[in-house]
């Protein structure tokens, strides 16, 4: 197994199955480190990581920062809402300013799809996409894949159903790109207005209701209803959405016997997922958060960590 160093991680679309396997394998010893009393290894000593989030985040930004710190990198955050961005500084100028301060990696979230790609082409820093518009969120999909593999032992051939607002979901897209490389049977479930018209071209089956889509599923990934990304009325009301698409323990009963439930967070309890299901031992949302730190440690290490001398000693 090997992972050829890549400059950027912008999406799972162009990442190979072997690269994903190395990331997931590397995350296993990283998770051991998080569980130790002494949560620090010197692997990335002297490396600088900066997080720049043009959209709000609790877990992604914090987990990147902790992942960097556990590997002994120096991490800092540009608070976009308190920065010169508010004075009208352009994205290009902001990034150049950051680059001149010397960090090795820029972890970036932006409401516009493709923004990190633009930045990556125009900077010498490595760029990790922490979510761009409705395009991709690669480390979320990697942590979902890690969480599934940890519970199921494998990804190969699993039936994975993704429920909710597929149209606006970068999490769904990255999951589809990643899981399809492992021969998973992918299903998306949601109101037709929230399912992109060409999604079946990605090798995904679409379902209009939970009952048919969840039958025999090994994994149910429930997406958040993203009210901030819906500018038109794509479904009649939250009440109607809850009525038709809120996943409950009764729905879980339709899935495979040992099916698990994922949610990228933050959860809208009582809208896309019932509180009862969110608290169920089959719901791995808390494990996903820990795994997110481990997977991000793996990505940072593989992109920044040292190569080997020819002769060890």
């Amino acid at each position: 197994m090997r992972f050829d160093r890549r400059k950027d991680l912008l999406g799972l679309r162009d990442v190979t199955r072997e690269e994903i396997e190395v990331i997931l394998e590397t995350a296993v010893p990283m998770k051991d480190i998080i569980r130790r009393d002494m949560k620090k290894v010197p692997a990335l000593r002297g490396k600088g990581i900066i997080t720049v989030f043009y959209e709000n985040s609790t877990r992604t930004r914090t987990s990147f920062e902790l992942a960097g710190k556990y590997l002994s990198a120096d991490t800092s955050n540009l608070g976009v809402s308190t920065s010169s961005v508010q004075k009208g500084e352009s994205l290009k100028d902001t990034i150049k300013t950051i680059e001149m301060m010397g960090p090795d990696v820029l972890v970036m979230r932006h409401p516009s799809s493709g923004a990190p790609h633009y930045v990556a082409r125009n900077t010498g820093m490595r760029v990790i996409n922490a979510g761009d518009g409705i395009n991709e969120h690669p480390t979320q999909a990697l942590l979902d894949m890690y969480s599934i593999r940890e519970r199921k032992g494998t990804l190969e051939g699993l039936k994975v159903a993704i429920v909710g607002d597929i149209l606006h979901s970068r999490v769904a897209r990255s999951n589809i790109f990643g899981l399809s490389k492992f021969g998973c049977e992918l299903r998306v479930i949601g109101p037709s207005t929230l399912i992109p018209p060409d999604v079946e071209k990605l090798g995904v089956k679409t379902y209009g209701n939970l009952e048919s889509g969840l039958k025999g599923a090994d994994v149910i990934n429930v997406l958040r209803i993203q009210r901030e990304r819906q500018h038109g009325a794509l479904f009649p009301s939250i009440d109607e959405y809850r009525e038709l698409y809120m996943v409950t323990p009764e729905h879980l009963a339709l899935a495979a016997d040992d099916a698990i439930v994922l949610h990228p967070g933050p959860m809208n309890r009582g809208i896309e997922i019932s509180t009862e299901l969110a608290e169920s031992p089959r719901c791995v949302v808390n494990e996903q958060v820990s795994n997110g730190v481990a997977v991000r440690m793996a990505v940072l290490y593989l992109m920044l960590g040292g190569g080997r001398d020819e002769i060890a000693g």
Partner: peptide
């Protein structure tokens, strides 16, 4: 013991060595 994360032979060339569990 896996010592990969503790090595001092850092070079940016070549792939990062695979880490195994301690």
């Amino acid at each position: 013991l896996d010592i990969t994360l503790y090595r001092d032979d850092l070079t940016a060339l070549g792939p990062a060595p695979i880490v195994h569990r301690t």
